[in-house]
C-alpha cells in the first residue's frame, strides 16, 4: 500500500464517518434540551402527575415551549413538584395554568400551559398558581362505572315504585 493511497482512504474514511455523525445529528435527532442561557425555570405542583417523565415536552397551543427538567415529591404537602426549563423567548402571565395532558388515548404525557390575562409575567423560579393533575385512566374508568352503577340503581328503584 502506497503512502498516498493510505492517505486517500483514511481521508475518505474520516469524511464518511463525519457524514454519518452529521446524518445522526441533523436528520435523525433533534436538540430537545435547551441550553441553560436560553431558558428559565418554572415550577408547578400537581396532586398526581400520572406517568409524566423527565424530558417530557411543555406545550402551549400545541407548540413545544420547554421540557420537564426534574420531578420530586414535596415531603411536607405530598404533592409532586415539577421543574420545567422554559424557552426564554416565551413568557407567561402570573395567572397562567399548567395541566398534565395525554397525547392520544394511550400516548405519552405532557404539560399544557394555558396563558392568562394578568400583565405581570412569571419570572425564573416562580410557581404556577393554577394546575390540574393528570387524568389517571383507571380512576376515570372506575369513577365512570361507579356512577353508571349508581344511576342504574336509581333507575331500577324508580321502576320498582
Amino acid at each position: 500500500m502506497k503512502r498516498g493511497m493510505i492517505d486517500f482512504w483514511v481521508g475518505l474514511f474520516a469524511v464518511a464517518g463525519a457524514a454519518a455523525l452529521l446524518f445522526l445529528a441533523l436528520k435523525v435527532s433533534s436538540q430537545s434540551t435547551l441550553a441553560v442561557n436560553q431558558s428559565y425555570e418554572l415550577v408547578a405542583n400537581f396532586d398526581n402527575i400520572g406517568g409524566l417523565k423527565v424530558r417530557a415536552p411543555i406545550k402551549s397551543a400545541g407548540v413545544v415551549v420547554g421540557r420537564v427538567n426534574a420531578i420530586e415529591l414535596d415531603p411536607q404537602r405530598y404533592v409532586a413538584r415539577v421543574h420545567m426549563a422554559m424557552d426564554a423567548r416565551y413568557q407567561y402571565s402570573r395567572d397562567s395554568s399548567a395541566e398534565i395532558l395525554t397525547s392520544g388515548l394511550l400516548g405519552e404525557q405532557y404539560i399544557g400551559i394555558t396563558p392568562g390575562a394578568d400583565d405581570k409575567m412569571l419570572k425564573s423560579g416562580d410557581t404556577f398558581k393554577i394546575t390540574s393533575s393528570a387524568i389517571v385512566l383507571e380512576q376515570l374508568i372506575s369513577r365512570f362505572l361507579f356512577s353508571k352503577a349508581e344511576g342504574g340503581n336509581k333507575d331500577s328503584t324508580e321502576a320498582g315504585k
Binding site: A25, V28, S29, S30, Q31, T33, R55
Partner: peptide, 19 residues
C-alpha cells in the same frame, strides 16, 4: 417516519451517549 424519529431521538441523550 422521519419527523417522528427526529422528535423522539435526542441528540445529546441518545446520539452523543451512543458515541
Amino acid at each position: 417516519f422521519w419527523s417522528q424519529m427526529q422528535a423522539a431521538v435526542d441528540f445529546r441523550l441518545d446520539v452523543m451517549n451512543g458515541v
